[in-house]
Design a binder for these strands. Structure first.
Length: 478
RNA sequence: GCCCCCAUCGUCUAGCGGCUAGGACACGGCCCUUUCAAGGCCGGAACGGCGGUUCGAUUCCGCCUGGGGGUACCA
């Protein structure tokens, strides 16, 4: 088992077959939090030994996702496809020690073998035919150019037990383990070999990975033993499920984390959200920034059961984090989503929306009227229930008149004047404010009206009131 | 089929033999209120089943059931 004198080194090791999705991001985050908390290193390793499944651009999109979520990795990423020789050398060593053997079976024979096993309801495993080939014969055939793979020779009896930091003690009977392939006939390693070689060489202390790997963990442990290397500690974290209880994977439109960025979510919120999927600090705290997550994280508190991603909670969290931002911060995060509007122009408006945002993208709809004239008014929105168009048009005129005469243009003055107007007209402030709201903003849902008017400015407000009035006068009476 | 893992409100979870089973999201109600939010208060809502162990099980053990994963010259 891992000894205490080894420093903490962990890694996130995606294969570049797609984007970084929530589940992958969570695995990465657990590694990252642990490394940062322990003052260790967080490494990135690209597992691209399956050249058939490589996807162009995948690596850079995964890296972009990690950076967006604030997970900077230490050291140069390890690219497995560049390390073919290291794996071949390691496999050769195993051949020498007898922990592995060459297998010359053809894919066709293997397929037939499996078909027969299936028919007999037996476990589908390699039948170890080549395991008994004498070493000299094996060498001769290899030299003669015959194609082969290298398989790990599993112990035929006994059991392999290890302690998983999340799952607890796990035991496998050795005779159920397959003599799986370590080195493919194309010279590339399989995951298993590359995993052991790389984790050993980069002195990984803790392997925190998805629990899909749990069934092969005993093989990995045995592999470390075969190399006579000290194995890392293991922590298998359960899957993240979608709302349909199915694993969150490509199959049901699993999302690239960058899509959350584009949809207006803050990386802080996404980090918090995924951290709490299968983990909790054991307290009642729930809105934690990344440094707080780092301080509280512990592998032992990771849940052994899978978690269903509840996106409604992400919305709520995002609102919480938005509310914690300074006006400056918020403005600069919204600005890029708002074409033609600068953070400077946005900043004074932030107090109007900060309390009501769930995503950054909602800000553009809420604030658009500050930068654009309302488009066509809808009379049914402009005219309160029980009032008529002419009357309402007159009210807009009256409001414009009163506002034009105001000596100062600030919140209190405007509010006082408008409330007086409502009183004078015999309108409820509710009706009056709604009508004015639509006239000034073109919408029925907006930030608080008076503040909005104060920020918009006297002249634009009056102009919009007159325009709204005119639109009603011109409208055909019904 | 075989191997392995998992199991508390709808969801995320706290719990680590004795609790009125706690919190959060969502939901419902009330308050606040110029819309929408935010905020405050209140409410409904869970230990999958059966056996053990024990004075006592949500908690420990076994079985069942139900989920999930693995079973490739994929990771």
């Amino acid at each position: 088992m891992a000894q205490g004198d080894r420093s903490i080194r962990v890694r996130y090791a995606p294969s570049p077959t797609g984007a970084l999705h929530l589940g992958g991001a969570r695995t990465a985050l657990f590694n990252y939090l642990y490394a940062r908390q322990q003052g260790g290193k967080f490494l990135l390793r690209i597992e691209d030994t399956d050249r058939a499944r490589l996807k162009q651009g995948s690596q850079s999109s995964i890296e972009e996702g990690l950076r967006w979520l604030g997970m900077e990795w230490d050291e140069q990423p390890i690219i497995q496809s560049e390390r073919k020789e290291a794996y071949a050398k390691a496999a050769q060593g195993l051949l020498e020690s007898g922990a592995a053997y060459r297998c010359f079976c053809t894919p066709e024979r293997l397929e037939q073998m499996r078909a027969e096993q299936r028919a007999r309801h037996e476990p589908e495993r390699y039948d170890r035919r080549c395991r008994s080939i004498p070493r000299e014969e094996s060498d001769r055939r290899a030299e003669a150019g015959e194609r082969f793979v290298i398989r790990q020779a599993m112990p035929l009896e006994g059991a392999t037990t290890f302690h998983d930091l999340v799952m607890g003690t796990v035991t496998f009977r050795n005779d159920t383990l397959d003599d799986h392939v370590l080195l493919k006939s194309d010279g590339f390693p399989t995951y298993h070999l590359a995993f052991a070689v790389d984790d050993h060489e980069s002195r990984i202390s803790h392997v925190i990975r998805g629990d899909g790997w749990l069934p092969s963990a005993p093989k990995h442990l045995l592999l470390f033993q075969a190399f006579n290397w000290l194995p890392p500690a293991f922590a298998h974290v359960p899957l993240v499920l979608g709302p349909d209880k199915k694993p969150l994977a490509k199959r049901h439109g699993a999302k690239d984390v960058l899509e959350y960025r584009d949809a207006g979510y803050l990386p802080e919120a996404v980090d918090n959200f995924i951290a709490f999927l299968g983990w909790s600090p054991g307290t009642e705290e729930d809105v934690l920034a990344i440094d707080e997550l780092i301080a509280r994280f512990s592998i032992e508190k990771i849940q052994a059961s899978p978690a269903v991603a509840n996106l409604e909670r992400l919305d709520w969290l995002n609102g919480q984090f938005i509310r914690r931002l300074s006006a400056d911060e918020l403005a600069s995060r919204i600005a890029p989503r708002f074409s033609g509007v600068t953070a400077d122009a946005l900043r004074p408006l932030m107090p109007l929306v900060q309390e009501r945002l769930r995503t950054l993208n909602e800000a553009t709809e809420m604030l658009r009227f500050f930068f654009e004239e309302p488009r066509d008014y809808r009379p049914d929105q402009l005219v309160p229930k029980g009032r008529d168009a002419n009357g309402t048009a007159a009210v807009f005129q009256a409001a414009a008149e009163r506002l034009r005469r105001l000596p100062a243009w600030d919140h209190d003055t405007v509010e006082h004047e408008l409330r007086a107007l409502a009183e004078h007209l015999g309108w409820s402030s509710r009706d009056l404010f709604m009508a004015l709201r639509v006239a000034v903003t073109g919408r029925t849902v907006t930030p608080p009206l008076i503040e909005s008017m104060a920020h918009l400015g006297q002249a634009p407000v009056i102009a919009r009131l007159e325009r709204a009035s005119a639109s009603l006068s011109n409208a055909p009476e019904r």
